[in-house]
Design a protein around this nucleic acid. Structure first.
Lengths: 203, 203
DNA sequence: AAAACTCTTGACCAACTGGTCAACTGCATG
DNA sequence: CATGCAGTTGACCAGTTGGTCAAGAGTTTT
């Protein structure tokens, strides 16, 4: 999440991501973003036609970042169960890092921004639909591989289950953000997730 | 959610609840709330020392409303499994109603507001802690009753499971809000929830 | 070297932000 | 009647909001 920004546009995107993720879209002003990035407002509006467009590009940036990691974590070369375990570890590490950097637990940037703008900007729904589709695709292929290995019931509704997993993680991240506490995620989420998937059935 | 407002203060709380739930805290201005409630701003600041205080009282109002319903749904006189089923039905009905009234799916008011203000106002975290504690208390007692009836494993970690249920529901509601679509909740949530609780284990 | 292009700058804007205030209303109590 | 008080009103405030723009700087292309 922290590479050297090349150009002004990228700098603005990264600065905005931090600020918006930490606070919220409407709580962060264009002036604030510009000031923190040390860029004049005229430059801002040279690259982005509006604040909303910046937010969209910030989401693309986040998703691009996530994809880089998930393509590895969910590589079909890994045992499917390991993919989920690694994902949970990755989430925990990422949250710890951001929390240390920004001073409090930030949760899922897509859910936070999406929830805030859902009643404001129609476009954001489409964008998050894309992201949701990508994430659930990772889950679905892992679930199918689990099924082949006989680790989950052959009657599992894979698509529905993938959405359950997504909602489950988003929900826990939102709660961690609100309570500013990663304790539950660190201590329980992996087990809870495996349970939701249907692994720990016959202890 | 729609009773006749008695006094100006209650009118403001109800108007603000609608507006904030539908859009977001920072997207709604005091002026807007006052205009819609047909109350002058001076009156607003007669009842509330600040916009943030209004938001707090709006949450209390929502929680009070919820409690009235949940005390019935989760009455120990009901079979524990029925309590969860009724809760899902209640959530669906409530979401449908609000969606029809406000023009789009609104999700969970606590999660939406909480997520937005988590990085802004420390106080909100405490408030939602209260709400979370109350909701999970309903779940926990139902889970314990399920355990006594032998419907879930006697090794279930009731407290952790109650938080999983809470996160699961919050997550699905957030996604419904973002996608502006209740389809998944209507078609899958009850089954998914029973599955998460650990009921549908031996189909 | 001239033109063309991308990028930067700072001044500027109208609309709006959360919040204040002194004066006013109507009603209950003494 | 008068005193007090909860509630109401509209004018007012300084600071901020998202956004514009003409002029200029730096670099490529012709």
């Amino acid at each position: 999440m922290a590479d050297a920004p090349k150009d002004t546009k990228q700098l603005l995107i990264e600065t905005a991501t931090e600020l918006i993720w930490s606070e919220s879209y409407n709580a962060v002003s264009v002036d604030e973003i510009c000031k923190k990035a040390d860029v004049k407002k005229g430059s801002f509006y040279h690259f982005f036609p509006s604040k909303a467009h910046l937010a969209m590009e910030a989401m693309d940036y986040c998703m691009c970042n996530t994809k880089g990691h998930y393509d590895d974590l969910f590589s079909p070369t890994r045992p499917p169960l390991e993919r989920f375990s690694l994902m949970v570890s990755y989430i925990i590490e990422q949250q710890k890092e951001i929390s240390a950097q920004l001073g409090h637990v930030c949760g899922c940037p897509f859910a936070t921004l999406g929830s805030e703008l859902a009643g404001q900007d129609e476009l954001i729904g489409k964008k998050i639909n894309e992201i949701c589709a990508k994430k659930t695709a990772y889950y679905q292929s892992a679930l199918r591989d689990l099924m082949v290995e006989g680790l989950i019931s052959s009657e599992t509704d894979v698509v529905a289950k993938s959405h359950d997993i997504f909602a489950f993680i988003v929900g826990h991240l939102i709660m961690a953000r609100i309570h500013n506490d990663l304790g539950f995620i660190e201590n329980h989420m992996e087990k809870s997730l495996l349970d939701l998937i249907g692994i720990n059935r016959h202890i």
